[in-house]
Write a protein that binds this DNA or RNA. Structure first.
Lengths: 188, 188
DNA sequence: CAATGAGTATACCGAGTGGTATACTGTCCT
DNA sequence: AGGACAGTATACCACTCGGTATACTCATTG
């Protein structure tokens, strides 16, 4: 593994465990077995490191999401696939998802929130597109795609958050429950 | 307002906006119009300040919660009251709830999470008691009180989080929806 | 009056912060 | 061979961090 990858990997581990603000550049460098100028050579700044980290992981997540967000008239089916994909991604990228989640709920003026907002818009838009398509079949959904996408993602992220702390398991039963809870919320 | 209260108030504002780690003791002191030794006189350390802040606000929240968590055989009714109470509390203590929420999702080894965990257990237990009582009337709920309390609080907190970012409104309709979504989750 | 003790400020501490100027390597390309 | 350039390390910068030693003020109390 080259130094750049080593830095990214160690930074992810440290940020996920203690948070962006609480981890120093020096510490990351030591963990990666390099020195600070090397880190600054690749990423320019601590914040740039965070951006690169988020960027690279998020494009992967978005590709997964794009593959699974195809709508063919059966919204529960698509939502089930999306939920499964997100659960699966969270389970196989626990560290990253943990970091991403804590940043999602970070204070409004924190650098963490700023960083993740820059990157997160696409994910939201993919989901919004899905709900816009579905609204063509279900009139009462029209005009609420933004709210639906946010709520859906919020619910999923909550479940993942609970699962990461071992309060529940991300099994098929939970997928089923989550989707039906959400659908129930739409048609009531 | 005495200096102690001024410090607490300013610390809350700053922590809620930028996070515990990103705010320095010096900055809190300046915002409160005092100097560091005064702060250390009252709270001993930066972490002690955070603990006091959480402690005082949480006892207030717990009192609200205790008043409203009375079970008389109608679980949806009680949950509606609890949800309303939490929504109301969040709406009237936006800054504090914002801080509390970001700490709830803070990285596992962060001081923020440690601090809130020390204080949060009681809240969880109040809800668990409710579900234990309800399980006497609904056999299929038995033994899951812990999961129910966690999931319920998680759901409520997600809605509040979305509301704090103006993605939705904490109105009676949402209370109804949330409670029914949750009840649906139990009996399916 | 003298003594106590809470509350506050000045001035300081060592350690660590994010970030960089400089110089040295090695590997390409001409 | 020689220049360019990515990559890396040593040593440093000014600044901020959480925390404190000391001394002062002032109200309470013996």
């Amino acid at each position: 593994m080259d130094n750049r990858s080593k830095i990214l990997s160690c930074a992810l581990q440290l940020f996920a465990a203690r948070g962006y603000d609480a981890v120093g550049v020096q510490e990351i460098a030591e963990a990666a077995g390099i020195t600070k100028p090397t880190l600054y050579h690749y990423f320019g700044s601590k914040y740039g490191l965070l951006q690169s980290l988020l960027q690279e992981q998020f494009t992967e997540l978005q590709n997964v999401l794009l593959k699974v967000t195809v709508y063919h008239g059966d919204l529960p089916l698509t939502l089930t696939r999306v939920t499964q994909a997100l659960f699966d991604y969270a389970a196989t990228h626990r560290r990253f998802y943990r970091m991403q989640l804590s940043m999602w709920f970070a204070p409004p003026d924190s650098e963490s929130l700023k960083a993740i907002s820059e990157v997160n818009g696409d994910q939201q838009q993919i989901l919004e597109q899905l709900f816009i398509q579905a609204a063509q079949d279900h009139g009462n959904m029209r005009g609420r795609h933004r709210a639906y996408a946010t709520t859906f993602l919020g619910m999923i992220n909550t479940y993942i958050g609970l699962a990461l702390n071992n309060h529940l398991a991300l099994d098929d039963e939970l997928v089923y429950k989550a989707v039906h809870q959400f659908m129930y919320g739409i048609f009531s």
